[in-house]
Design a protein around this nucleic acid. Sequence first.
DNA 1: GTGAAAGCGCTAACAT
DNA 2: ATGTTAGCGCTTTCAC
Lengths: 329, 329
Amino acid sequence: MDRVTMADVAKAAGVSVATVSYVLSGKRPVRPETRVAVEAAIRQLGFTLNSAARSLRTGRSALVGLVVPDLANPFFAQLASALQEHVRDLGLHVVVCNTRADRREELAFVREAVQQQFAGVVITPFRLVAKDLKPLEDAGVPVVVSADIRLDGVDRVEPEARAAMRAALTAVTASGRRRIAMIAGPRDATGGDPRLELLRALTGQFGTVLPHGMVVRGEHTREAGAAGFGQLMGLRHPPDAVFCANDVIAVGAMGRAEELGLRIPGDVSLIGYDDADFASLVRPRLTTIRYPAGAVGAAAARLLRERMDGRSVPKTLRVGAEFVERESV
Amino acid sequence: MDRVTMADVAKAAGVSVATVSYVLSGKRPVRPETRVAVEAAIRQLGFTLNSAARSLRTGRSALVGLVVPDLANPFFAQLASALQEHVRDLGLHVVVCNTRADRREELAFVREAVQQQFAGVVITPFRLVAKDLKPLEDAGVPVVVSADIRLDGVDRVEPEARAAMRAALTAVTASGRRRIAMIAGPRDATGGDPRLELLRALTGQFGTVLPHGMVVRGEHTREAGAAGFGQLMGLRHPPDAVFCANDVIAVGAMGRAEELGLRIPGDVSLIGYDDADFASLVRPRLTTIRYPAGAVGAAAARLLRERMDGRSVPKTLRVGAEFVERESV
DNA sequence: GTGAAAGCGCTAACAT
DNA sequence: ATGTTAGCGCTTTCAC
């Protein structure tokens, strides 16, 4: 019981392999009766296309790489889920690449994507810069960068978070807080930390500032969140409101607050980012800026498809972020 | 700037393509100096293997499919992460398949795996039965089933949860609870619900029973957890301890308890399963049976590798589950 | 509207 | 220890 090939189908249907191929691809007209015969043969023999052969011939695989710093972070898990769902219709599969925020792993996956002739790559670069993505462009692999950093010449999906951040600041200052701080991502991350930049840009409008001493940095982990929060609270003049680069960090901070006997939001307000699903589960429920992973996945899929359909000018899609007020402010 | 092929490398190194291939694969001895020359040429030309060509030739791709009911469930996200990490060393990539517990999607992915000649498949079947996996075996694709259900003839990784469940029951009965209930998975899920069977088998030893009326069923979602809990609490004689088929369900139940004004564990004990990372985040902290996703991923990778190395008799690996006592009992 | 045939870049006999 | 070569199954040009 060997593999069924197009040749088998062709023989069974009394046509040439070329015709079988064209019936499948629709790339040239086929007489209805021929089509029917071929389709019958396909069904009868249980033929399925060999994608390795197709890839070899066309120079493109049916794989989309998803490169993220932490697949276990619910935000990225949901992104993976959504992306997969959306590229399925295009007959594509999602290959996940967990880089653990490590630059070498990111680079390794970029190389893999070229080697495997991926149909596309969706990446949230963490320590990669624009030119690291160059090999992909050179190889003609469509790239979508999902991050709120400015990167030229590539398709991007980024949050539209200004209004949400403003709303957050409004809520924070309305509850009398003035000493704003942030637990941001690592200094050496790609693009610094755009969420920090946004916060900084906006604080001025609220009669406050975000002095350097009020910004601590770390990885996007609970541990870093705890450490950062501890650091902040050890200051001579500790903050009364702490923004976090994402919800994972915020949850770490919340844990440390409890250990320190600090009440949230009584003693200090805490604001997350992403609205990961545990955000509404922790106590107090985390007030956060929702960046919908599902919508991001959908946007990335759209960008990818447009590229594959021939668009050649870079495009960026904005996904709306939204202030979600719960109990931590 | 065309793609660099083995032929280019061979020419540059002054050898044949076969030699280049053998240098790469190590499948036959090569003189050191030859090897060096080839490696130099590879580096210099920036050659990378075309995996489509290799796959076409060998009849095997470098892809491992991970088929799960819900990629957004932290347990499966971590499994994906761990699996990827472990198969990387084998030069394999992980293709994720989110089936949303839908039998048709599960079947579709099994077909895909055959068509794409996957190097292996790790699957947590939800509505698939043994014979649905047959096409994979026929195609010679190594399969690892990750589930606590008995399936013959395939490699499996399953939890060793008896002791943990006994510990849970001990804790529950020690706090005076006797009216045990369970929110289990759907009746039509593959293998029924083994976690329910385990609980049922053990309750007898604790001087209690698990009558049919005390078992409600639903999907592995928060909504189903909430609904199931509500149903249980609407009983004439409601339970004073509720086991859940996983943590997602438990969290749903916890939410409904709050809406109902029921205190946990004051009025009713709640026990989860998995120890997803939000389990320690909810309040009260969820007491649960930890099934370590990372270890499951590692075990699956090991099984896969052994198969690829030639083992032909099915094998099952057990991963220890552990009772984690927190605040909900 | 259909067919014949040339490869895509590898691997693995089968030589030597 | 190395080289030659057939062919994996498809897509697509060129011919009819």
